[in-house]
Write a protein that binds this DNA or RNA. Structure first.
Length: 226
DNA sequence: CCCTGATTCGC
DNA sequence: GCGAATCAGG
């Protein structure tokens, strides 16, 4: 397998999107995890949130030891300070985006007006919720599943790879290389590469290793059928 | 052991 | 440039 333009683009997108090298390799197909990593480095992409060096514990605890930070053993001075945006995710704006397929049969008691059941706060500043209320509070939109609202008119107004900027959501829709592949294009959640809705999908609490569910974690609408 | 990314080095 | 082997860490 050779690194075509599309494959490189996919690699970049997924790498920046936070996918692991294994997931990227699986999506691309025909390449190993090492190949992805090697290529990523050759492309100039550099270490994003890697579980290995997740020694980032920002806590207001009375820790009198700011860590002396010893020099790296090998010649690899990777100054990845990781600013950590930490936006005020306390008030997720309930964008009443009635995308055609609303379900009016949802009375939504709203007995507890402002009382989000938040268990803890994730690393990126996102709210980590209990298992029961998965994505309930964030998107007010009812359970919608693949709305055929816009079947396949044109790719005219779709956000292509070239239309990406810091202001629009970079969430990929469809598979790269396919005619209708595009990106979300919505206004981004400030400080993040995705819109609010996709931030909710991109930044989820990592479940235990053994209990990962294959279907939801990644974009691209699921694994490609080969 | 599993996983992760980083780096090396022969090709 | 490529990627398997290896390294290093959680």
């Amino acid at each position: 397998m050779s690194w075509t333009d599309e494959r490189i683009a996919t690699l970049k997108k997924m790498w920046e999107g936070g996918s692991t090298a294994s997931q990227i390799a699986e999506e691309l197909g025909g390449v190993s995890r090492n190949a992805v990593i090697g290529k990523a480095h050759r492309l100039g992409l550099k270490s994003r949130p890697s579980p290995v060096k997740a020694a980032e514990k920002k806590k207001a605890a009375p820790k009198a030891k700011p860590a002396p930070k010893p020099a790296a053993k090998k010649a690899a001075p990777r100054p990845a300070p990781k600013p950590a945006p930490a936006p005020a995710a306390a008030a997720p704006k309930p964008a009443a985006k009635a995308g055609g397929g609303t379900t009016p049969s949802q009375p939504l008691p709203n007995k507890t007006p402002d009382l989000p059941k938040i268990v803890s706060v994730g690393p990126g500043g996102f709210l980590r919720q209990g298992p029961g209320d998965q994505q309930a509070p964030i998107p007010p939109a009812p359970p919608r599943r693949l709305v055929p609202a816009k079947p396949s008119p044109e790719i005219a107004d779709k956000t292509s790879l070239l239309d990406l900027s810091d202001k629009v959501c970079r969430w990929p829709m469809g598979h790269p290389g396919e005619p209708d592949f595009h990106f979300c294009g919505e206004a981004v959640n400030p400080g993040f590469p995705y819109c609010v809705e996709h931030c909710g999908r991109a930044y989820q609490a990592q479940l235990p290793r053994g209990a990962r569910r294959p279907p939801p974690p990644l974009p691209f609408g699921g694994p490609r059928v080969r």
